[in-house]
Structure formats: structure tokens, C-alpha cells
């Protein structure tokens, strides 16, 4: 048991109207871990991410980020979100800003940096995702893969301690997923702590330190990828991962 998890989620409950999505979900993430969350649609993966950065406040349960309980009363969610980067399935790049502007706006408005400093840092972050030459382009002038890389740079600019990826490649054409996964892999190798909701099994095998299988709002099973893929303890895990692998093969 590692002593200090960067994120600890305990007995989380979340429902939308009558539909319960998270039913006592618990998870603990160590620094520099890359956890890949898999599970059937509606199993609560995206909701979990949105609860972690308080975009959807949980109904019950507690979350600690670096020892601080962020679900406690009186916590300012804006301050918490600065430490958690989030990448969305459909990018959500700011339409009226260029790639550079997208990365800069959080730096100037939230981190209150000076324009010049923000400009330099933004260029550096775009360099990290290999898009410095697209700095002046508007989102509409970028490919899907480029958009997602800008979105990653935008999140990185906030200097996050934890990155959440919500199906970052599922809105992309298959030939564009590679460039995004590459950036993510590079981030992982630099030691970024990441929680990734994704069904990219290749990425999970190569990059994940842990694969977490959820279903019905709770964790069914979790473990290192080798164990999860080769000899899962639960039958449900085996059936689900088999199905994904089949789909993966067929789409190639």
C-alpha cells in the first residue's frame, strides 16, 4: 500500500433524476499512475471524471485531491479545477480563439499571467504537442487530431497535477487517433498522473499502469494491464474485454 495517493475517491454516489449512475464508487490513484477506465456505456466513467473535477457535484461520498478533501463544504471548485486538467471527447476548443488563444486564455484569466509570459508559455505548450506551426489557426481550420492536441496543450498550460481524459479519441477518424495517443504516451512517460476513459486497448496495454473495469457504477475489477487482459479474476471482465478486442479487430 503506497502511503500518499494523489486522488482518493470514497463511496461516491451520483444520480441524475431517477437514474443512479455511481453507486458507492471508490478508487485511489497514486502519483504518476496512468489509470485506464473501461466499461460498458452508462457504467459511469464520464460521470466519474466530471465528479472528480466537480463539474457534476456528487450526491454523496468524499474525494481527496493531494490530501485536501475537495468535497468538503466551502471549497471553491474553481481553485480545485486549476489543478486538474480535463480533455473532452469533442474537444470543446473555444471557437472564437486561435490555437494560441485557446492555450493563453486560461493563463491570463485564471492564472493571471502577464500577456507576454502567457504567450511564451502557450507557445511552449503547443510545442509539446507538436503544433507550434498551427498557433494562429482557428479551431475550424484544424483537423480533429490537431484540435485534440491543442485541447491537451490548453489543459497542460494550467500546470495540472492530474489529467482527466474523457474518451479523447472516440470522436476522431481512426487515422487521426495515433497522433493524440502519441502525445498522451509522451505525457505519461514524463510522469504525468492520468485517468483515461478509453477503449483504445493498445494504449491501455502499452501505457497504463492500471486498468479499471467498471460496470453499474462500481469497480468490478482492477489490476495491471497484463493481468487484466491475460487472466482476469472476474468472468464479466473477461467477456467485456474480449468484446472490445473483437470490435477493435473488426474496425481495422
Amino acid at each position: 500500500m503506497n502511503p500518499t495517493p494523489i486522488l482518493r475517491v470514497e463511496e461516491l454516489y451520483k444520480s441524475f433524476g431517477q437514474t443512479a449512475v455511481l453507486k458507492g464508487f471508490s478508487l485511489s490513484i497514486q502519483p504518476q499512475e496512468v489509470a485506464v477506465l473501461v466499461g460498458p456505456s452508462g457504467s459511469g466513467k464520464s460521470t466519474l471524471l466530471r465528479c472528480i473535477n466537480l463539474l457534476d457535484p456528487p450526491n454523496a461520498g468524499r474525494i481527496w485531491l493531494e490530501q485536501e478533501e475537495i468535497t468538503a463544504a466551502g471549497v471553491n471548485p474553481d481553485r480545485i479545477r486549476q489543478r486538474i486538467g480535463m480533455v473532452f471527447q469533442d474537444f470543446n476548443l473555444f471557437t472564437h480563439l486561435t490555437a494560441l488563444g485557446n492555450v493563453m486564455v486560461g493563463l491570463t484569466k485564471v492564472r493571471k499571467m502577464h500577456k507576454k509570459e502567457a504567450h511564451e508559455l502557450a507557445l511552449f505548450e503547443l510545442e509539446r504537442v507538436g503544433l507550434v506551426d498551427r498557433a494562429g489557426h482557428y479551431p475550424a481550420q484544424l483537423s480533429g487530431g490537431q484540435k485534440q492536441r491543442v485541447a491537451i496543450a490548453r489543459a497542460l498550460g494550467m500546470d495540472p497535477h492530474l489529467m482527466l481524459f474523457d474518451e479523447p479519441t472516440s470522436a476522431l477518424d481512426p487515422e487521426l487517433t495515433g497522433e493524440v495517443l502519441e502525445v498522451m504516451q509522451q505525457l505519461a512517460s514524463e510522469g504525468m498522473t492520468m485517468i483515461v476513459v478509453s477503449h483504445e486497448m493498445g494504449f491501455a496495454r502499452q501505457v497504463a499502469s492500471r486498468v479499471v473495469f467498471l460496470e453499474g457504477g462500481v469497480v468490478v475489477e482492477q489490476g495491471p494491464p497484463a493481468q487484466m487482459f491475460e487472466r482476469p479474476a472476474q468472468e464479466r471482465t473477461r467477456v467485456f474485454l474480449r468484446k472490445i478486442a473483437d470490435l477493435d479487430e473488426r474496425s481495422r
Binding site: 479545477r81 480535463m86 473555444f94 472564437h96 484569466k109 494550467m158
Partner: peptide, 27 residues
């Protein structure tokens, strides 16, 4: 303006007011 613009702004740590001023309103 698509909801995702507001969500992304809030995820960056902007307050609702900041998000309206710098992201939603200019669009």
C-alpha cells in the same frame, strides 16, 4: 453557443462570470 464551451471554461478553473465574459459572450 454550445454548452461544451462553458464546460471547458469551467474545467480550466474559470468562475461562471469569467467564463461568460471571456468565452461565451465574445462568441
Amino acid at each position: 453557443v454550445p454548452v461544451g464551451q462553458m464546460t471547458a471554461a469551467r474545467a480550466l478553473g474559470m468562475s461562471q462570470g469569467q467564463a461568460v465574459r471571456s468565452i461565451v459572450l465574445p462568441q
